[in-house]
Design a protein around this nucleic acid. Structure first.
Length: 476
RNA sequence: GGCCCGUUCGUCUAUCGGUUAGGACACCAGAUUUUCAUUCUGGUAAGAGGGGUUCGACUCCCCUACGGGCUGCCA
């Protein structure tokens, strides 16, 4: 199979992967998944995961974007090794390599101006054809060089083919005749992306380049630079991009595209990781798994070749499982971070304590953090309880009367479900109503909601005194 | 325009020439439940189209369609 043949592992080298975003905006969901795949691959193999900010485009790069990317990765729990590398700061090294290519004869100085190149293209277009720009300086005699600005271009082979052995895409053959002599160093001596990635990946010891498949074609040009410098080519893995629910390329039109938006919407990081891992990757029937399990299972062979669409329902379902699975302390911690991210007020100590004791009965019914908070509403509020519209309806005069007869019976009982259950059932029976009819006003009185956990759980969580007080409030 | 990549239920996917094409989400029906939810049971639902190769193709090859990418002194 081509995917197996594509493998050229060098088991003697430890795995080094990297995530290399350009800081032109927030960390979008597709980039987050790319980072996750790199992280999983490296960490699952005892390797290193590096972070490099591709900030060579000074016009569009901002420190705010870099900060947002770092925040996003941190939230997702994707920790990187060593310092964050700024590509811009390595520009001297890039220029050095360009000069070395010059010395090796694998690159050349090109004095063609941008106007000349534009004119060349315009002419080709006017003829209705398309032609690669071929620099007249490729084989020029240095004696003819003008005293003018120049760029350094790769002296790319014009015949033959370049073969990309990709772990995901298989063997991809690119005709060299379809590639031009790309610019490596601009006339202002700054490197282009094409040169900078290769130099950085090489210098950083990157062994596996896992990135979006929009770079698949670029890999051929980059491979030429590796060859020109006599460097070892990394293992390529070009993964399909994520699309919106409508199958179109992900954009702002689809709403939330930044990972921080997801945090603010209350998706737990563990659920997010699980969902993103499964998006475009599979390992048999594994659906819900911990990060430790993902680390064990993740491999390049499991990555699919088609673009995957975002499915919020499945995201929610996955997150629901993770909320139910996570331990209370971690959940509370995450909840705190969520409130900050969502710009909501923090919980008081009292609320925290009550919420903690309420978790057992709300954890497995929430798919997101705000949903969890809503289910735990009864534990977060203090008297007087304000019933919402739906629950207020069940507090009519009849049910108020019932609450009045019930409350005194709650005073001298041991506060356990076993002791409370017979009392409530009996009160319901005495009034000739089903238990459901009694539960409704209880919910309204205790939580001010018509949808809550079991009334027993609520009573146990808030305690005897608070229960009686809330019932008395509602009974008058 | 040229080149490159992709295409299995609505969605994420399994399958690596021989399966009643499996699982998950969603959806529908039923059961459990003091509400909602959870949980449980069952169900609907797929190989883009057309040619080959082969005893046999979802799987290999070609063409078409559709989607995406690259084709910048952007990354």
């Amino acid at each position: 199979m081509s995917r197996e043949e594509a493998t050229s592992p060098d088991v003697s080298r430890p795995v080094v992967t990297r995530f290399a975003p350009s800081p032109t905006g927030y960390l979008h969901i597709g980039g987050a998944r790319t980072a996750l795949f790199n992280w999983l691959y490296a960490r699952g193999r005892g390797g290193k995961f590096l972070l490099r900010i591709e900030d060579t485009d000074r016009e569009r790069s901002t420190p705010e974007a870099t900060a947002a990317i770092l925040r996003g990765l941190t939230w997702l729990g994707l920790d990187w090794d060593g310092e964050v590398v700024s590509q811009f700061e390595r520009k001297d090294r890039h220029a050095e390599v360009a000069r070395e290519m010059l010395a090796r004869g694998t690159a050349y100085k090109c004095f063609s101006t941008q106007e000349e190149i534009a004119a060349f293209r315009a002419e080709a277009e006017a003829r209705g054809s398309y032609a690669l720009f071929q620099s007249p300086w490729r084989d020029a005699d240095p004696a003819t060089f003008p005293d003018a600005p120049f760029v350094i271009r790769m002296k790319a082979p014009r015949t033959g083919e370049t073969i990309i052995n990709d772990e995901v895409q298989g063997r991809v053959v690119i005709q060299n005749s379809s590639l031009d002599d790309m610019i490596c160093l601009r006339s202002d001596a700054t490197p282009t992306y094409m040169l900078a990635v290769v130099v950085d990946d090489h210098d950083m010891g990157v062994t596996h380049v896992i990135r979006g498949d929009d770079h698949l074609n670029n890999a051929a040009r980059q491979q030429m630079i590796y060859d020109a410098m006599g460097w070892e080519i990394p293992v390529w893995a070009h993964i399909p991009l994520i699309h919106g629910p409508d199958g179109k390329k992900l954009s702002k039109r689809h709403g939330a595209t930044g990972v921080e938006d997801y945090q603010a919407m209350g998706y737990p990081a563990a659920g997010m990781r699980n969902y993103l891992t499964r998006l475009g990757w599979a390992h048999g029937d594994a659906e819900i798994f911990t990060t430790e399990q993902a680390l064990q299972m993740f491999d390049l062979a499991g990555i699919g070749r088609g673009p995957a669409r975002l499915d919020f329902k499945k995201l929610e379902n996955t997150c629901g499982h993770h909320i139910a699975m996570s331990d209370d302390a971690a959940l509370l911690h995450e909840l705190t971070a969520y409130l900050v991210a969502a710009g909501k007020p923090a919980l008081t100590n009292r609320q925290n304590t009550l919420l903690k004791s309420a978790l057992y009965c709300v954890k497995d019914r929430a798919k997101t953090l705000p949903e969890l908070l809503e289910k735990a509403h009864f534990a977060l509020i203090s008297r007087p309880v304000q019933p919402d519209e739906a629950s207020a309806k069940s507090l009519d005069t009849v049910s108020r009367g019932i609450l009045q007869t019930l409350t005194p019976q709650l005073r001298n009982v041991s506060w356990t479900k076993d002791a409370l259950e017979p009392i409530l059932t009996q009160v319901a029976a005495e009034n000739g109503i089903g238990f459901g009819k009694l539960a409704a006003p209880l919910r309204a009185a205790l939580a001010g909601r018509s949808v809550t956990p079991s009334v027993y759980d609520m009573m146990l969580v808030i305690g005897q005194d608070e229960t009686i007080a809330r019932l008395q409030d509602a009974a008058v």
